[in-house]
Design a binder for these strands. Sequence first.
DNA 1: ATAATTTTGTGTTGTATAACATATTTTAGT
DNA 2: ACTAAAATATGTTATACAACACAAAATTAT
Lengths: 233, 233
Amino acid sequence: MAKICITNEEVLQRMPNLERTLTPDQRQKVLHGIRIQTYKKHERVYSEYERAHDLLFVISGKLKIFKDGTGGKQHIIRVVLPNNFLGYRAFFAQEDYRTSAEALETAEVAHISLSMLNDMMHVNAELACFFVTELAMHLGTAHERAASLTQKHIRGRLAEALLYLRDAYGLEEDGCTLSIYLSREDMANLSNMTTSNAIRTLSAFAQERIIAIDGRKIKLINIDALERESKFG
Amino acid sequence: MAKICITNEEVLQRMPNLERTLTPDQRQKVLHGIRIQTYKKHERVYSEYERAHDLLFVISGKLKIFKDGTGGKQHIIRVVLPNNFLGYRAFFAQEDYRTSAEALETAEVAHISLSMLNDMMHVNAELACFFVTELAMHLGTAHERAASLTQKHIRGRLAEALLYLRDAYGLEEDGCTLSIYLSREDMANLSNMTTSNAIRTLSAFAQERIIAIDGRKIKLINIDALERESKFG
DNA sequence: ATAATTTTGTGTTGTATAACATATTTTAGT
DNA sequence: ACTAAAATATGTTATACAACACAAAATTAT
């Protein structure tokens, strides 16, 4: 078990967009309020219908946010990488969680009390504006993705998922390998298809030299083709 | 052509959640900044890829917010009734519009400059918090709907759309007729199916006495059955 | 009122994709 | 190292839904 070797101070510095909105006083309170927790692979960070208490910030590792649908099939909303926030939407909407989150790999997550932040927000316009921007961006991608998932065909949805993973999580040094390795099942849940079809379609893309597959490692070979597929091919 | 017969003062009073956040000074500026515009049925209020300038507030009539997908089929994101806001997300995310909006029937819409509101927001925490709540709620329904539209079958999606319309827009005095009359095509675009299938499935529901149809007027007869269908029947 | 257009309704056919089955490979556990 | 379990792969079958075709009704325009 790797022990936590990052200070609250360091964590706070990793969230400059939030940090810079705080008064010295508020900064102090937040600093001391940070609690870091480690989650093992597949461990739940929070579950649908629970009460939301904390703003979460991924320090290391990756999480997925999803909704469990009919027949155990889950709909992945997004994958959260280090230095990103999650877990605050439900609280601000004054609801319980409507999604669940779990670790895709061992992950360190910072917890900050949302009721504390909420109190600060009501007297700190910049802090509130930070969340406005954050929410507005996520709402945009949510609409975008809803339209794609419902209108595109399998190849288009998978192509889009691959491009999404590239945009959101980047490539390795070689400039074409996706930095994120997902299981075929998670790829399927992200693209709204069965696992079989994710496997099949990835194989098809590989045979067409659009991508290259080595286990969970995926190289994007022909970006143009992917983009064509994505806008309905 | 019906002329506009509502004062800016009256409009402002119809948005108490926003109004109450404003200082007297800001209130005055907003009051004078309100411009009311009338849109005819099917008229565009804004279009995808345009720059977002105004916060919009529906005074009368109904709008639909949608994305045009492949093959002219549109994905309706939501229907906006009087006393509701729209048009602000893109601005706060610092993007151009990613959706379009048009009038489902003649509609009066108040326009308020977003850059003015944005300036106020940065010094008025309560105003910013208003948008945080607004955005957080919409993001919740966006996730909810994305999961439903991708996972449920036709009957479930249509049943859900009917319940959604009831929850969002209410019933007439008889306690069972939906207050909103949509074309079969719009029902289809809301439930992610073809027009034919919306018609067919509505007929099926009518034959099963789950609903009753009289043109565009829809009575919800058996709510239990609808709810059962909605959670995957 | 009459024609033209749009909306609604219903049947038929085609197809994308889910569901199922089963083999192989990889990963995890003892 | 050996076993069990999970993930990957691929072929076959079944089906939900789209696409198409056309008729009837309703709305809109002339």
